[in-house]
Amino acid sequence: MVTVEGTSTARFEPVRAALAAHLESGEELGASIAVDVDGVMEVDLWGGHADAARTVPWRRDTVVGLWSTTKTLTSLAALVLVDRGALDLHRPVAHYWPEFAARGKQDIEVRHVLGHTSGLSGWEQPFTMDDLYDRPTASARLAAQAPWWEPGTASGYHMQTQGQLVGELVRRVDGCTLTEFVETEIAGPLAADVQIGAREADWPRISALVPSSQTPAVPEGLDPEAVLTRTMLGSPARDEHVDTPRWRRAELGAVNGHGNARGLARALSVISRHGEANGLRLLSPETVDRIFDVQADGTDLFLGIPVRWGIGYALAGPRTIPGMPTGTVCFWAGWGGSIVVMDLDRRVTFAYAMNRLGTGILGSERTHDYLGRVYEALGAAD
């Protein structure tokens, strides 16, 4: 039987058993799971291997690329600035970033960016990885383009643009980069092992991501004018770019965060605990409440599934993902299965990070299995 390291309280032993089973079957290569219950890390587990050849064990301090779970950190950075009065959710983005007003975007508000309703779900073509890696170019291109639908009327997941949009706002109002802000204002104070990009000193402990053999190709025959098509073509980062030096050195606040489950739970528990964690009040309860101001509730123009978007996070509801209860719960997941769930009703934070990518839009089957077992243990499964 595969050994799972770390600790878990008695009620969460089924979570440990599930991780062991997925590792034993080979579905899971290496992974970490954490559950923070009102400041107590009741689950802090890891196991498996950090490399595809299974020669390097996944250790306590192993970190991994987070894909879109990165957005949970980027949105938290924006909320910290909202809480400080530096950002106003209802002010136009152009108030802070004047160039952004071009081509009819003068009325797009900060909340539209955080709620994925701004109409800027991808970059106009041609747009390359070289452009994405160059922050000034990527920002200027978004500032110069027109929205792809009427802002505020529907969501279209900002798969790779949201990090650029929020990152530029952070830089304009605070003077530092998003990477610096997350490090100095979130990760450091909360003792959370998370970061945007990856410091070169940490590269030896990064586990490379292993794509699924079922990774889908871009479908053929799509309507070239559809938001789905334009977003896919206008979001150039792919599996092959991850775990390269350029990727790790870049600031891609939508997709290239690094961390593990413990680090994510420590950082995002500040939301589950109504603004305070690790002895630090990072957000007021009123700012946390703003997360649940619904920005869109319907079929997302890019994802093609119903998503209820609040400020920076998706909101739980009857149409979300298996194992997740309704209530005052927000979350987001990354490509391959990583996830953070913040449950304010129970003051619980669940995080999962892994190196073998699964399939699915909002988490993989493994994600759903772990999440369901967590809520069964809490006595709150639907």
Rank of each mutant, 00 (worst) to 15 (best):
P189R: 03
D289N: 12
D223S: 05
A316V: 02
A20D: 10
A34W: 08
V35N: 08
M41L: 15
A94W: 09
F12R: 05
P14I: 05
P216F: 06
S272G: 15
A381H: 14
L268K: 02
R54W: 01
A21G: 13
V80K: 01
H112I: 08
G47Y: 04
Y352W: 12
P236S: 09
G360D: 02
T69S: 15
A138D: 09
P211V: 05
L81K: 06
V227H: 13
D289L: 04
M342Q: 14
G175C: 11
P147S: 11
G26E: 04
Y370Q: 02
L190N: 07
V182H: 01
E150Q: 15
L209D: 04
G152I: 01
L87I: 03
E13I: 10
G358T: 04
F292Q: 10
T72S: 15
V294L: 05
E220V: 12
Y352V: 07
T72N: 07
S338C: 11
V37A: 13
D38C: 00
D300A: 07
F331E: 02
L73M: 14
G39R: 00
V288P: 08
V227I: 15
I186C: 00
T137N: 04
P151I: 01
Q214V: 11
V113A: 01
A277M: 00
T231G: 06
R346P: 07
R290E: 15
T349F: 08
A20C: 11
A154M: 13
V255S: 15
A154G: 11
D345W: 03
G363Q: 05
D36C: 12
D193P: 05
W123V: 04
L303W: 00
T177K: 09
C176P: 06
I321E: 09
S75I: 02
G48D: 00
T287M: 04
Y375S: 05
E5S: 13
E251C: 15
A187F: 06
E180G: 05
R103A: 13
I291L: 06
S25Q: 05
R356W: 01
T349P: 12
G156R: 00
A50V: 09
R141H: 13
G275D: 02
V194D: 01
A94M: 10
S118Q: 02
P285A: 09
L233P: 01
W58R: 05
F181T: 00
D44T: 02
P285R: 02
P322D: 04
Q145K: 11
A52M: 07
T320L: 04
A140T: 12
F100K: 00
H274M: 13
Q164W: 14
G85I: 06
P189N: 05
W149R: 09
I311V: 15
V56E: 14
A140K: 11
L228C: 01
A333V: 10
W67F: 15
A18L: 12
A18E: 13
V255W: 06
A277H: 06
A254W: 08
G337T: 05
H95P: 04
L209F: 03
E240Q: 13
V348P: 05
W67G: 01
H95Q: 13
G360E: 01
L66C: 01
H258R: 03
Q195L: 03
P245G: 09
L66F: 07
R54A: 14
G263D: 01
R135M: 03
R308A: 02
R199A: 14
L315S: 07
D343T: 09
Y313D: 07
L190C: 00
A146D: 04
